[in-house]
Simulated assay, not measured.
Amino acid sequence: MTAQAMADAKTADDRTGARCAGTGTGPVLARAFRILGAFGADHPAMTLSELARRSDLPTSTVHRMLGELIGWGALERGEDGRYRIGLRLWEVGALAPRGQGLRESALPFMEDMSQITRENVQLAVREGDELVFVERIAGTGAVPVLTRVGGRFALTVTGGGLVLLAHAPLDVQEKVLAGPLPPFTRRTVTDAHTLRRMLADVRRNGYSVSDRQVTMDALSVAAPVYGPGGEVAAAVSLVVRHGSRSAHEIAPLVCASARAISRALTQPGRAAP
């Protein structure tokens, strides 16, 4: 084959690859991620056709890959014929060091705070320009919340998110504040200038307050958890029913718990999260 023929063949292959990627038949690993990424809190179980539609892949492609994903344990098929995230994937996810190390250090203090207040206690980390909850303890009779372990949320509305955003790199702050800033309630702050003042208050006061920004019946107070290098590794928050307690009343408890978790993270011999 001549050099020109080889170049022409490569160009044809590139074009074919581009067309394949556009029609949902790209690299195997990318297709697997798209199938797994189709699941969410609002779609925890799906049929084959639903998976194909949400992953934007051909039904034949999804059907072919489901066997391998089920065989490895990433997915499971129930008696109803629907597919769900498998236990093996959860086991692997639990090994993520930021989640595992933080949870081990934070849980005793989170449990103490939950027992004292009977309210919701949450632990979150920042992933890019979003918040991810790595642990949550639901208090007896506590106000209902929209959060769940492993769930993602906007940084600008929750107490934990405001703490993490206040201590995030400047480029992350600017990206988030540039929007969009979605409203959850009529109390949600969607003005970038107001949010900048709130973030400055968080850094000055050492804690954040989210008052009815996510739901109209919830008040959240959060404080930063520091890692071994002095960086903000996470945020711990207490969510109470609006009107039951004031932010000023619960802030000392949240800050004390955050300091205790920070000390536990920096103990000699403990692996950094």
Rank of each mutant, 00 (worst) to 15 (best):
M110C: 01
R31A: 13
A5R: 06
Q173T: 08
S220M: 11
N120E: 03
K175G: 03
T140D: 15
R187G: 09
G26K: 00
P144M: 05
L181Y: 14
P182R: 04
T59M: 09
R118T: 15
R186P: 00
R152L: 11
R204P: 04
S114M: 09
F184C: 04
L164H: 03
R152Q: 14
L69F: 07
P108F: 14
A256D: 15
Q115P: 04
S55R: 04
H242Y: 13
A223C: 03
Q122V: 13
R88L: 14
G206F: 05
P183H: 02
G141E: 07
P44N: 10
G40S: 07
L199C: 00
H248K: 14
V209D: 01
G73P: 02
V225R: 00
G128W: 09
Q115I: 14
V92P: 00
G71R: 06
T158G: 11
L181E: 10
G71W: 11
G229Y: 15
P252V: 10
A3T: 13
S208T: 04
L29A: 11
A218G: 04
G159C: 05
S220T: 14
S210V: 08
F33C: 09
M6K: 13
E104A: 12
V145Y: 04
G128P: 01
E174H: 05
I250S: 03
H167M: 07
S105T: 02
L29G: 08
T266Q: 11
A30K: 11
A260C: 02
G17T: 13
N120H: 10
V28K: 09
G99T: 06
V236Y: 02
R204W: 09
E104D: 07
G150R: 01
V189T: 08
S55W: 06
A258N: 02
N120R: 04
R82K: 01
G227I: 10
A200T: 15
G93E: 03
R98E: 11
V172K: 00
H167G: 04
R82S: 02
V232D: 02
W72K: 05
R196M: 14
E76A: 10
E174P: 03
G139H: 06
A223V: 07
D201S: 11
I116Q: 10
P97Y: 10
L95Y: 05
M6C: 13
A271H: 06
E76M: 02
R204D: 12
E231S: 02
R187Y: 10
H43G: 06
G78M: 02
Q100I: 09
G17H: 10
R98A: 14
A234D: 02
E91H: 07
I85S: 00
M65N: 15
S262E: 06
L199R: 00
G22Y: 14
R34K: 12
R152V: 15
R31P: 03
A260W: 08
V214M: 05
